[in-house]
């Protein structure tokens, strides 16, 4: 099988992102939020809530979810989907950790 492997770019150190917090990466395709969980896993989502475009990077991170700062929708970091009664999905990006550095794949 022929797979195009994504191109990862180093966007910073894991320690630049607070635990249970997020930082934002500005790209030509809009802002991407990188989240860090309590157990030091990282996730990347488009920094836009499916509800009214609230900046998810500013929300409260708990478990593998983030609560949007504007109207408290809860979005899964793993799937980008809205949890609970509401519906919607935000785009996910590939991100990984290598030697304490955060690598983000911006291209599809």
């Amino acid at each position: 099988m022929n797979m195009i492997s994504p191109i990862f770019t180093d966007v910073g150190a894991l320690s630049d992102i607070p635990r249970l917090g997020a930082r934002c990466v500005k790209t030509a395709m809009g802002d991407i939020a990188i989240f860090r969980t309590a157990d030091d896993r990282v996730f990347a989502l488009r920094d836009q809530c499916p509800h009214k475009h609230g900046p998810l990077s500013q929300g409260i991170v708990h478990g593998t979810s983030v609560t949007c700062p504007l109207h408290a929708w809860v979005i899964s970091l793993e799937t980008g989907e809205v949890e609970g009664p509401d519906d919607g999905c935000t785009k996910r990006f590939s991100v990984k950790l290598e030697h304490g550095r955060v690598l983000l794949a911006v291209a599809p």
Binding site: V11, G12, I17, R23, K26, T27, L104
Partner: peptide, 11 residues
Amino acid sequence: RQKYQPLAELV
């Protein structure tokens, strides 16, 4: 100060 800046800018 740093926490108010983007982590990186990719353009």
